[in-house]
Amino acid sequence: MDRSYLTLALSKGRLADQALELLEAAGIDCRAARVESRRLILEDPDAKLRFIMAKPADVPTYVEYGAADLGVVGKDTLLEEGRQLYEVLNLGFGACRLCVCGPEALQGRLDRIPNKRVATKYPRVARDFFELKKRESVEIIRLNGSVELAPLVGLAEVIVDIVESGRTLKENGLAVLETIAPVSARMVVNRVSMKMKADRIAPLLAAVRAELEVRRSRTEERRHDR
């Protein structure tokens, strides 16, 4: 084990691209991760940087166990996985909402259905929301995709899912009934690495934070110009 390496776990897909773009803008050399390859571990021996490409739901696990020092992952995944991590930065991109959705007719009457069936990819988020926050009993039905289908075919009354534009919902005659939490990409850090590799992690975080600050003020200026 080479302890001088810093290992970054990225969520394969769009989130990884946006994360790399942000890191590069913050002055961190990510060429190693840009190589077109099917390899799962990409190393930059000069910068002592290692990227691992993981399934989004696995990123918190890699980071909690210290197999990766840092990770970039959506808040929805963090809520669902409930891992012990430092959640240090809100990266802003990948913004959407975790919502309870269902037929428009249920608007405002959700609490009148006893033992609702809730279809979702986020069983833990759904259970916590209904049982702990709303104090309502539910039956959770775990699905792996196209969750919108469930209310349409009578598998469930409502769904818990992430909503970006709401178009898929609309086209299927569904509506947002309640918002559970706003979601965006987060930078997470292993609790031990934060201490043991502070000399490398702290400057990296500072650079990313500074870049986020620049982006924020840029958007504000743009808003101001209009």
Binding site: M1, Y65, G66, V192, K195, M196
Partner: peptide, 9 residues
């Protein structure tokens, strides 16, 4: 207390 090589205290 923390050390290298293990993600937990």
């Amino acid at each position: 207390g923390f050390t290298y090589g293990i993600g937990y205290p």
